[in-house]
């Protein structure tokens, strides 16, 4: 390959990887805040639990490409660009985080909840001292699934002008250029493996505590 083309491609890989990371990081942080927050509230309100799980399930069944497309014409949150892509990724990441938060908390040993309440813990203390620490490995497992899936799904953000490594892949597909496709796909796969390894390590560390 021509060194000039190669340098240009390398520069694209670096900048688009940066964009990809921003897409994944911002959407994951928002999804964690919403998913864990609603998950915790859902363990206290059965109706909220049922409604939120149903909504997240439905969102998950929408093909990712279609979800990006659905959001495009919606005022304020839609349109071409990174914001729409981030919103799609947030909606797409909610289910594993929400479900694992609810499962992690509701499966805490009832005897522990009974003893902690009988010792005089408030609901907040029960949550922060007992339920969340014990549910942490399960919640983290949900976050891990969400983040790793997110790295793959974020590739499609390029379709709606959201940037990221998908730009290289779609460009490669359009021009039947395998090098460009690989230039997008390989860094995305490496990012996914790194995220999986790091979060898996954290999960095991927390599980041992």
């Amino acid at each position: 390959m021509d060194p000039v083309v190669w340098r240009s491609l390398a520069a694209d890989i670096v900048s688009l990887t940066g964009e990809h990371l921003v897409l994944v990081a911002v959407s994951s942080i928002i999804a964690i805040c919403i998913g864990v927050g609603i998950g915790i509230a859902g363990t206290r309100h059965r109706r909220l639990r049922n409604v939120s799980i149903t909504v997240a399930n439905v969102l998950q069944t929408i093909p990712s490409l279609a979800l990006f497309g659905f959001l495009l014409p919606i005022p304020v949150i839609g349109g071409i660009g990174q914001r729409t892509a981030i919103i799609s990724l947030v909606l797409y990441s909610l289910l594993p985080i929400l479900r694992n938060t609810i499962v992690g908390i509701t499966t805490v040993d009832p005897a522990l909840r009974e003893a902690s309440t009988a010792m005089g813990m408030t609901d907040r203390q029960l949550l922060t001292l007992v339920e969340l620490p014990l549910a942490a490995p399960t919640i983290l497992a949900g976050i891990r699934i969400a983040v790793v899936t997110n790295i793959g799904t974020a590739v499609i953000a390029a379709v709606i002008g959201g940037g990221g490594l998908g730009v290289l892949i779609f460009r490669g597909v359009a021009s039947v250029d395998t090098t460009q496709i690989l230039a997008g796909a390989v860094p995305a796969a490496v990012l996914a493996l790194l995220a999986d390894g790091t979060l898996g390590y954290l999960e095991r560390r927390i599980g041992r505590l």
């Binding site: 522990l112 003893a115 009988a118 001292l129």
Partner: peptide, 10 residues
Amino acid sequence: YVIQEFGLLP
């Protein structure tokens, strides 16, 4: 309060 299942925080 003491219960049969101990209820100790693991």
